[in-house]
Design a protein around this nucleic acid. Structure first.
Lengths: 204, 204
DNA sequence: GTCTATATAAAGATAGAC
DNA sequence: GTCTATCTTTATATAGAC
């Protein structure tokens, strides 16, 4: 142990504070001064950790967030058990445990503010770490007979992410009494699965 | 006819240009100079039409957009025919014909930048003009027996809006060849309807 | 209705002390 | 690693001419 924290911890805490603001509000609505204030620092100090300024910080934080989502989805779907219903419930629980990820805003507002190459890399990561992971599980469920053969896995994977993420911004008043976002997500997953001819256990 | 345009037309064209930028990108990512440039004006000219500046312009444009969406949903669902499937298809066609409306971004970023009373009014309008209109049609379909009695109409209404809007940001590469966003929306609607025990014509 | 010019404030960024 | 001070750019906003 050092006097205060482990080496590199200041950088980690900076990224945490930055993500807490960037993730829900986007790059344009957050200033470096906002982030510094959340840490009790001045904005000039941030350039020590990210010489590239706001763009570099946002890109680093967003990349870390996407990768963490990918890993979180992987492990939460794995621990959801063998059935696609369990996996999707696990995925929803994970997504709702994290700050909202507004993919529409990312595509329309955040990405155009970054260098083209950075933008491409991040959007590619979103596709691989979020959409594709879900899509693969859906495909496996089709092969096992758990889901109907007509399932458009790419379409449904994208829709499920949008669906669950939209629950993040559901105001508390819109929640049925005593039922939280996770219960709502489960209901929606059940509706979609039924629409995809979900058949417990698949063909034997 | 006047020499050029009808009275008040400059204001309308300003709102059109502003909406084209504000709707996809949000209040924080668009400057008054961006909007003025799109019209070949200087930003100072905008204050003639909206003395309250950016906030007033954004609020006016957003309110008009929500009201137009409400009217568009009403008429498109009406012309979709008597079945809930036709109505939802009409609603999807309407939403996809309009600029993307990112409700997550509105709630998380745009609204906090406005005076509390303005924010409340706009969020109330979103609920009444978008969610509630869909919810009422879903409720009617439950009563007629077209949809199962367990349908949580509020949950499904919110989910459908999020679903269709998320298609706006689907990159062209992700579209199956020859199939556009409207076809994708129809597929998703069919999945959801099936999950809600859709029964053509309801009970007789 | 729109312009030029200007005022003011906010935000990104750099330099150098501690 | 963080600060103060400063610079530069960008953005909102106002005043007054045309």
């Amino acid at each position: 142990m050092n006097e205060h924290e482990a080496v590199g911890d200041a950088r980690e805490r900076l990224m945490d504070a930055a993500e807490a603001l960037f993730a829900p509000k986007g790059i344009a609505a957050v200033t470096l001064r906002d982030i510094a204030a959340a840490l009790g620092l001045t904005h000039a100090s941030l350039y020590y950790h990210f010489p590239g300024g706001k763009e570099e910080l946002f890109a680093a934080v967003t990349e870390r967030s996407i990768l963490r989502h990918g890993e979180g989805l992987r492990s939460s779907m794995e621990s959801g058990g063998p059935s696609i219903r369990g996996k999707l419930r696990g995925a929803a629980a994970w997504l709702l445990s994290q700050p909202a990820m507004d993919l529409i805003r990312m595509a329309e507002t955040d990405m155009p503010a970054l260098p083209p190459e950075t933008s491409r890399r991040l959007m590619g990561l979103v596709y691989r770490e979020l959409i594709l992971r879900l899509q693969r599980e859906l495909d496996a469920a089709v092969r096992s007979g758990e889901l109907g053969p007509g399932t458009d896995s790419g379409l449904v994977a994208g829709a499920l992410v949008g669906l669950v993420e939209s629950l993040h911004s559901t105001p508390p008043e819109a929640l049925s009494p005593g039922r939280g976002r996770l219960e709502m997500a489960r209901d929606l997953i059940d509706i979609v699965l039924k629409g995809l001819d979900f058949h417990e256990g698949g063909r034997e």
